[in-house]
Design a protein around this nucleic acid. Sequence first.
DNA 1: CGGTTGTAGGTTGTCGACAATCGAGGGAGG
DNA 2: CCTCCCTCGATTGTCGACAACCTACAACCG
Lengths: 243, 243
Amino acid sequence: MVATRWGLATVERRSTTEHVLSELRAAIIDGRIGPRAPLREVALADAFGTGRSAIREALSALQQEGLVVSERNRGTWVRELSCDDVVDVYRAREAIETAAVAAALERSSYDLSLLRAALHELRTVCDRDGMRSPSQALIAADIDFHRTLVALAESQRLSRAHEPLAAEAQMLLNWHPVYSGSDYVDDHQQLLDAFEGGDAVAAVREHLRLSERLIVAVVETYSSRLRVVDDGAATATTEEADR
Amino acid sequence: MVATRWGLATVERRSTTEHVLSELRAAIIDGRIGPRAPLREVALADAFGTGRSAIREALSALQQEGLVVSERNRGTWVRELSCDDVVDVYRAREAIETAAVAAALERSSYDLSLLRAALHELRTVCDRDGMRSPSQALIAADIDFHRTLVALAESQRLSRAHEPLAAEAQMLLNWHPVYSGSDYVDDHQQLLDAFEGGDAVAAVREHLRLSERLIVAVVETYSSRLRVVDDGAATATTEEADR
DNA sequence: CGGTTGTAGGTTGTCGACAATCGAGGGAGG
DNA sequence: CCTCCCTCGATTGTCGACAACCTACAACCG
């Protein structure tokens, strides 16, 4: 290999579509685009400086991931998640994450160091950003911990199945701040401990059910609030995202 | 609702892309297209009588589902599943299906009639097609039974997560015939019985592990056979699928 | 003859134009 | 005032043309 001998990195070659896709996905998940915001093809094409094809492909991918909804000849919007959706996301997460942990435990040779690293990252971000309302980075670290958890099962397809759920959960947390920073670290520390001297499966289940309850409570109040000022809020998020 | 009052069905309006997508997916899953077969955009566009856009969108959707692979500027092919893939598919199925059953049991109010219907369909198809090598219809009924199983959890997202695994499993069974017809019915009857007086979760786990072993054995011999006559077999399947 | 470079053929990547479709709003009729 | 119809603007659906790219093979050089 000449490239390795000369220490040359292979040039990163991403297609336009991939670039648009990851950019849009990140913006939605981080909450920079906000629920119900319209995703117009021509506007996005202008913004990214590409043709509509790339945008269309990215949008249809996002639709498959469940992050946006689109209606024929009417357009695409960032999906708004209802209370029922929150419950469904967490039920599905519970199913997949507990199954993944069970599979990892069954094999009895799993690598906890990755999990420890994820926890360490969580702690670092928490220390940096303080105890106030959780930052995007903290939420991302939270979700990454759970990704790592699923990865313990060492099943490519299980991780793939988990991915859209992780994205939706991250989106939810960014729209509806719940935890305080310290809770994040403590909860996940407990989770890690359960691997060493406890019932990890049950710990994961409890962790998720607790989170579900917290978020449902917040989303319920949010939805009722939204229902009152419906149009106002909708257009507000629209303009903000259209910028 | 006037439509419901008059018993009128809403006219089915499928976009070109959806049509192409479902057609291609069915062809791949049923084994009519075969592994490694190339999926050329222009050829498919001519065949379907559409432009390339519809084909491209359908292909990228199939890629997300994991049914095809494509390389930049080189094209798209039906994905060939290795032994490791078989194991991964069945591990992931085990995780999701057992979790789904556990979730259904936990709620303690689940509707077994759908499952009975699926079993009945399985039996009907088996009687019609005889005991010889399982037909496409029988395999489809098998997989439908498992879809119904997951649906017991009544989680939209869990079913969505299961869907690509179901598709890959069906594809595998069609490429590598394993069971005889009667085995199909008996095995799934046992599964249903376990809901009424046994450990359904364990039953599903055992069922899937048995299937995995059987298929792995077949795929192993198939791959080694393929490795000998590699080029010949590859071009053969190519031409057959190109027809 | 080994290895490199140029070239040709075929496939996908990207784009802009035009058609199909939808919803909003105005105007006529009751 | 209400209802229906029609038109209009906006958005997506579809298509074909052209560019970028990759592979294989031929030509070339040492």
